[in-house]
C-alpha cells in the first residue's frame, strides 16, 4: 500500500515539476525522471513489458528527442513567447480541475464496478498456448490483434515521412551538438555498441516466451544509434541511400507481405503460420522502428560513416 502511494505521489509531483514553473530545460529533465518513475510504476503494477517499453521508448527515446529539439530551438533562438493572460490561466485552472474531478470520479466508479469478467483477456489466455508463445503480450501484438501492430508500424513510417516533409530540404544541415573530444568516449562506444546489439537481439528472441519483444529491442537499437550520432561516430547523410530507405520500410513491408501471403495459401488474412513468422516480423519491425527513431533524432534523411 505504501509503495503504491509513494509511486503515485511521486508521479504527480514530478509531472508538476515538469509542467509548471521553472525553466524549460529543468522541465525536460524532470520529464525524463517522470518517465523513469513511471517505469517503476508499471513494474510495480506487474507489467514488466510495459516497464521496459516505458523506460526505453517513453523516457529514453522521447527524452532524447525532446532534448535535441530543445537544443535546436535554442540555436534558432526563436522569439520568446508571451506569458498567458491571467484570465486565460484562470480559465485553464477551472478546466483542469473539472477534468481531474471527472476522470477521478469516473475512474473510481469504473474501478468499483470492476466485474473481472474481462472476456477478451480470458479467451486470450486460453488460446495463447496453441500459438506456441509464452508471452501473452507478444501473442496479442503479433498473432491475435496483428492489424493494430501493422498499422502502428505504418504510423511510425508515416511519422517519419511527415517529419521529413516538415523539415523540407534534402541536405541534412539540421544542427547536431559537436561531439565532445574526450578520450573516454572511444572505449565507451567500443564496449557499449556490441553489448547493446547482443541485448537487443536477446530481447527480441526472449520476447516470445518472457517479457520483451520487438518494440523494446528497437528502442535499444535507437538508443545505440543516438549514442553513435552524439559521439560523432555516425553522421547525418545528405540523401537517403537505397539501403536506408529499405531499412525504414522493411517492417511494414514484411508484415504486409506475410499477411497477404497467408491469403495466397488459403489461410485467413494476416494469420501467423508459426514461430518463425513471429520472429521474422519482429526482426523486421525492430530494424525499421529503430532506424526510424535514430533518423528522427538526427533530423536527417540518412546516416553516413564519419562525421566531420
Amino acid at each position: 500500500m505504501v509503495i503504491d502511494v509513494f509511486l503515485a505521489l511521486g508521479l504527480v509531483v514530478l509531472a508538476w515539476q515538469a509542467l509548471i514553473g521553472g525553466s524549460l530545460f529543468r522541465g525536460i529533465v524532470m520529464f525524463i525522471v517522470f518517465g523513469m518513475v513511471l517505469t517503476l510504476a508499471w513494474a510495480w503494477l506487474g507489467s514488466p513489458d510495459l516497464a521496459m517499453a516505458e523506460a526505453a521508448i517513453g523516457a529514453g527515446v522521447t527524452g532524447a528527442l525532446i532534448m535535441i529539439a530543445y537544443w535546436r530551438l535554442r540555436r534558432i533562438n526563436a522569439v520568446e513567447p508571451r506569458d498567458p493572460s491571467p484570465a486565460r490561466s484562470r480559465l485553464a485552472l477551472v478546466i483542469a480541475v473539472l477534468a481531474t474531478g471527472l476522470v477521478g470520479a469516473i475512474g473510481l466508479a469504473a474501478v468499483s464496478a470492476l466485474t473481472g469478467d474481462a472476456t477478451a483477456a480470458r479467451v486470450m489466455n486460453e488460446t495463447l498456448p496453441d500459438t506456441g508463445l509464452g508471452n501473452p503480450i507478444t501473442g496479442v501484438l503479433i498473432v491475435f490483434r496483428n492489424l493494430d501492430t501493422l498499422l502502428e508500424v505504418a504510423v511510425v513510417l508515416a511519422a517519419y515521412i511527415a517529419a521529413r516533409a516538415a523539415l523540407g530540404r534534402e541536405s541534412a544541415d539540421l544542427p547536431l551538438p559537436p561531439a565532445p573530444d574526450t578520450p573516454l568516449l572511444t572505449p565507451l562506444v567500443v564496449t557499449l555498441a556490441p553489448l547493446t546489439m547482443v541485448v537487443a537481439i536477446y530481447l527480441l528472441k526472449a520476447g516470445s516466451q518472457y517479457p520483451g519483444g520487438a518494440f523494446q529491442a528497437s528502442a535499444l537499437l535507437a538508443a545505440l544509434g543516438v549514442l553513435l550520432v552524439l559521439t560523432g561516430r555516425v553522421g547525418p547523410a545528405a540523401a537517403a541511400n537505397w539501403l536506408t530507405r529499405a531499412g525504414l520500410v522493411i517492417g511494414t513491408l514484411v508484415f504486409c507481405l506475410v499477411g497477404l501471403g497467408m491469403l495466397v495459401i488459403g489461410a485467413p488474412l494476416l494469420a501467423i503460420p508459426g514461430i518463425w513468422a513471429v520472429y521474422l516480423i519482429e526482426a523486421a519491425m525492430m530494424i525499421s522502428i529503430g532506424l526510424t527513431l535514430v533518423l528522427l533524432f538526427a533530423g536527417a534523411p540518412g546516416l553516413s560513416g564519419k562525421r566531420s
Binding site: 517499453a53 517513453g58 525532446i66 483477456a121 486470450m124 501473452p136 503480450i137 496479442v140 501492430t149 527513431l293
Partner: peptide, 19 residues
C-alpha cells in the same frame, strides 16, 4: 494481457506522434 498490448501500441504511437 490485451490491455498491456494496447498500451504498448499506444506508447509507440505516442512516440511517433511526438517525434
Amino acid at each position: 494481457g490485451i490491455a498491456q498490448a494496447l498500451v504498448l501500441t499506444g506508447i509507440v504511437i505516442a512516440v511517433a506522434a511526438i517525434a
